[in-house]
């Protein structure tokens, strides 16, 4: 356990707020300017920052993040460059904010699990989310990450049966990422009615904080969910705002959602 993530949740809780986990794509529109986007997320109130690393075949992502992946790859983004050119600078500007890498397992395999974990920790990464690596496939990789002090954050889905969800939560590192809707990333006008029950179930079983993600883009949604979760993840809405109107728009969106998270 890196411990950084637990501290960030504790700080938010002490302020009487749910945590905002904010996602943006490294390398969109290019590597240096994405550093400004990540910084803006923290200025807007993000408690944890997810650093997206582009993959050519993002099967868990909807059109907004697919588009960002394509732009980032065109701009020359790679995991190695993100760890060298983006993560250290964001970490220098925002030393309190845990950084979590979100990418697909093939990108990590290509670098080598051990090499990634060591390098990531050195550069200031606290955790990683790999949406195409379910528990059955993650044993060896998680042991490697544990040894390096990088939390492999598990995902739990609406389709996950109760016992499996509890097992995932009990064994979690960092936080549990509860996928709110059966589908890909992207903004949704409505979230499923049984989401709060599911969050309660996972939260009861989990020794670490629980957040809801996928589909969340407004302060109202964040407010509703914050009664049942320790925080929310916002991704596509931020990526869209940053792409359309730059870092300040992403900052404003974070601030707005953060208002919804105040208890």
């Amino acid at each position: 356990m890196s411990g950084d993530i637990a501290k960030a949740f504790a700080r938010a809780k002490a302020r009487g707020e749910g945590a905002l986990v904010a996602y943006a794509m490294a390398g969109d529109p290019d590597l240096p300017r994405s550093v400004d986007v990540f910084t803006a997320l923290v200025e807007g109130g993000a408690d944890i920052v997810e650093v997206g690393v582009a993959f050519s075949d993002p099967i868990a992502d909807g059109p907004v993040i697919q588009g960002a992946s394509e732009r980032a790859l065109k701009a020359g983004s790679t995991l190695r460059r993100v760890l060298e050119e983006v993560v250290p600078e964001v970490h220098r500007r925002c030393p309190e904010t845990p950084l979590v890498i979100m990418t697909y397992v093939n990108v990590i395999m290509a670098m080598g699990e051990e090499r990634f974990a060591k390098l990531a920790r050195e550069r200031g990464v606290s955790g990683a989310i790999l949406p195409d690596l379910p528990p059955e496939e993650s044993g060896a990789l998680r042991a490697t990450f544990d040894a390096a002090g990088v939390d492999l954050i598990p995902l739990c889905a609406p389709t996950t049966p109760r016992a499996r969800a509890e097992a995932i939560a009990k064994d979690a590192r960092g936080f549990v990422y509860c996928v709110s809707v059966a589908g890909v990333t992207g903004m949704r006008a409505e979230l499923p009615p049984d989401l709060s029950q599911r969050l309660d179930l996972v939260r009861n079983a989990s020794p670490v904080p629980v957040v809801a993600g996928f589909g969340i883009s407004s302060a109202d949604q964040a407010r509703t969910l914050s009664a049942h979760a320790d925080g929310v993840v916002v991704g596509s809405a931020i990526v869209r705002a940053a792409h359309a109107d730059g870092p300040q728009a992403a900052k404003a969106l974070c601030a707005e959602i953060k208002r919804g998270l105040k208890r």
Binding site: P134, T159, T160, V179
Partner: peptide, 13 residues
């Protein structure tokens, strides 16, 4: 081999 898919699909598989 294996099953490298989003958690949402694991129960279906």
């Amino acid at each position: 081999g294996g099953r490298y898919v989003p958690e949402t699909l694991v129960p279906a598989l």
